[in-house]
Simulated assay, not measured.
Amino acid sequence: MKVKATKHAPKKVLIIEDEGDLCLLLNILLDEKDMEVEHVQSLAKAEEYLLQEQPSLVLLDNRLPDGFGIDFISFIKKHHPATKVIMITGVDAAASDVAIENGADVFLKKPFTKAELFKSVNDVLN
């Protein structure tokens, strides 16, 4: 009997980042890893998205126009406990401990390499 190979559904990733260039770069990199990528540029839009969808992974910037990503981690974990969170920030390196305490799975400091991004994504999703 032949078993038909089924292609797994791409993992959903939400990028919450207000820097257009970084959004585009993350989108391109994750797209080549067979991931369904959406992005929003504010916590308000992220909240709307998360009330409709359940991503496997959220890439979360800390400094956003309407607040701090670090304070938004609890919202993500409350509504989607299984969703993994990678906190990304360039200026708040000291925030890594707080981000992890608040429920982030990984803290990625800007600037990061493609290899660091892929390792972080693979570590939390596998």
Results as ranks from 00 to 15, higher is better:
E101W: 06
P55E: 08
L108Y: 07
K84A: 09
Q54D: 12
E32M: 12
L24R: 09
I76M: 05
A44V: 11
I86C: 07
N126Y: 10
F118G: 00
I73H: 03
F112C: 02
F72Y: 04
L125M: 06
E17G: 02
V106D: 06
A104G: 09
G90V: 07
S42A: 04
F68P: 03
I70S: 12
A44Y: 11
K7M: 14
V106W: 05
D97L: 14
I16T: 01
L50D: 03
V40T: 08
L59V: 00
Y49N: 00
G69N: 08
H79Y: 12
A44K: 14
H39C: 06
M1K: 11
T6P: 10
K2N: 15
Y49P: 04
E17W: 00
V106L: 08
A94N: 15
L22P: 00
L125T: 05
D18V: 00
D105N: 14
L25C: 08
V3H: 14
V13T: 05
T6Q: 15
E47H: 12
S56T: 04
H79L: 12
V85K: 07
V40M: 05
A93L: 14
L59F: 01
D66G: 04
N27G: 13
F75H: 07
D66M: 00
I100R: 09
V91Y: 15
E32Q: 14
L60T: 03
A46I: 01
V37E: 00
F112G: 03
D92R: 13
A115R: 10
P65S: 02
E101T: 11
Q41R: 12
A9T: 15
S74C: 10
E116S: 10
I28N: 08
K109M: 11
F107W: 07
K7T: 15
N126T: 13
F118H: 06
E48C: 09
E101H: 11
L14W: 01
L57M: 01
P65M: 04
E47F: 10
P55F: 07
F72K: 03
K78D: 13
E47Y: 11
Q52I: 13
A95C: 12
S74R: 15
L57Q: 01
E53G: 06
H79C: 06
S96Y: 06
V98D: 11
F118I: 10
V121M: 07
N62P: 08
K2W: 10
S120Y: 09
F75P: 01
E101N: 13
L60N: 00
K109W: 04
V85S: 07
V58W: 02
H8Q: 15
V124C: 06
V3S: 13
I73W: 05
I76P: 05
S56L: 06
S42H: 03
A104L: 01
C23L: 08
T113V: 03
S42D: 02
L51E: 14
A46H: 02
L59P: 01
D34E: 14
I16P: 05
G67H: 04
E32Y: 12
I86E: 09
R63Y: 11
I16W: 02
H80M: 08
